[in-house]
Amino acid sequence: MNATLSTAEVLRTALAGLLDGLPPKQAAQAVDRLIANYRGTTPTHAPVLRDRSDVAAYAAYRMPATFEAVRSALDALRVAAPDWAPATHTDIGGGTGAASWAVAGTWDEARTTVLDWAEPALALGRELAAASGIPALRAAEWRRERIGPNLELAPTDLVTVSYVLNELTAQVRSALVESVAAAARAVVIVEPGTPDGYARIIEARDRLIAAGLTVAAPCPHSDACPIEPGTDWCHFSARVSRSSLHRQVKGGSLPYEDEKFSYVVATRFEVTPAPSRVTRRPQIRKGQVLLDLCTRDEALRRATVTKRHGELYRSARDAAWGDTWPPDGRDERQRRG
């Protein structure tokens, strides 16, 4: 990999070459159909990604967004456990490997195994990885496995499960999360940032905690989520550079879009969760910043940071949705003490 390029840039370059020779209209039609069906009720024994053109169009459209969402979750894990790094990684339902690219960009020595049922997706994932120039990706193993209740997982340091749970029945989801919890030292699960996606994350979170894992992010604690079911949902946002295919399919002109996602990170080793997490886009007003927070002790609350707070006010103006708060990781009692 060119040392001057980030993993995200290498991925964008690799994806740009996927659609060479595929008419733009055909690519856009393929993505339209796949968006409608791929993340729907199709059982995992009948992959919707049928051939290379399907996979190429879908990868070019979805991989950047999945990459950025997973990278955000991995960044939160790295903040909670700065001295930890996985030696092994299993990407369940990894398809063309977006989560594996995110892991390689975070820890460049993790040995990755990608499991998926769609052979065309695995084949394209291998191709992209081989062309990446990134050693961890080029060394990855791509294995066809049915993602179901009988999936056997070898012990591993890190498991990622991104945008997969909504393809499974409730019974299969439960069995999969329990298998993941038994096999991994750290688990990262990402779902769409919708009420249904959040509900699946909470379900998985509860099972991970019951299996003895500790929540590392985004929550400041491993207690019950303070959001009353049906009233709201916890989700975050990642900025994604839009390709020409994105603009063709969505008819937009902006060079970026925001991927909304929900996630949970849980571990079997010691972590330091955020004292508070910014759970909405900060509101900047004249002389003050309003931060909606999930906190360790007070559940959900709104903090008002004004100019009289000095450096903290400047930090609040720079705070982003999903950030740890306060930025130095200390809670307010530590700051006063």
Rank of each mutant, 00 (worst) to 15 (best):
V55R: 03
V55C: 02
A56K: 07
A57D: 03
A57R: 00
A57I: 08
Y58K: 03
Y58R: 02
A59K: 07
A59G: 09
A60I: 04
A60G: 12
A60K: 03
A60R: 09
Y61I: 03
Y61T: 01
Y61M: 13
Y61P: 02
Y61C: 05
Y61E: 02
R62L: 13
R62Q: 14
R62D: 12
M63V: 12
M63P: 03
M63L: 15
M63Q: 13
M63W: 02
M63Y: 01
M63F: 01
P64C: 06
P64Q: 10
P64W: 09
A65T: 06
A65N: 05
A65H: 05
A65C: 02
T66F: 02
T66R: 00
T66H: 00
F67T: 03
F67N: 04
F67Y: 15
F67L: 13
F67C: 03
F67G: 08
E68Q: 14
E68Y: 00
E68C: 13
E68L: 01
E68A: 15
A69C: 14
V70G: 09
V70C: 08
V70P: 09
V70T: 13
R71L: 14
S72R: 12
S72K: 09
S72F: 13
S72G: 14
S72Q: 12
A73K: 05
A73P: 11
A73S: 14
A73I: 10
L74Y: 06
D75Y: 10
D75G: 13
D75R: 14
A76M: 13
A76Q: 15
A76S: 15
A76K: 12
L77Q: 06
L77Y: 05
R78A: 15
R78H: 11
R78I: 04
R78Q: 13
R78W: 03
V79F: 11
V79K: 12
A80D: 10
A80Y: 01
A80K: 03
A80R: 03
A80Q: 07
A81Y: 05
A81D: 07
A81P: 07
A81K: 04
P82L: 06
P82V: 08
P82N: 04
D83K: 11
D83N: 13
D83P: 04
D83W: 11
D83R: 13
D83A: 14
W84F: 07
W84A: 05
W84R: 01
W84L: 05
W84P: 02
W84E: 07
W84M: 03
W84H: 06
W84S: 02
A85N: 05
A85H: 11
A85Y: 03
A85M: 10
A85L: 08
A85G: 12
P86S: 10
P86E: 04
P86F: 02
P86L: 04
P86V: 06
A87M: 09
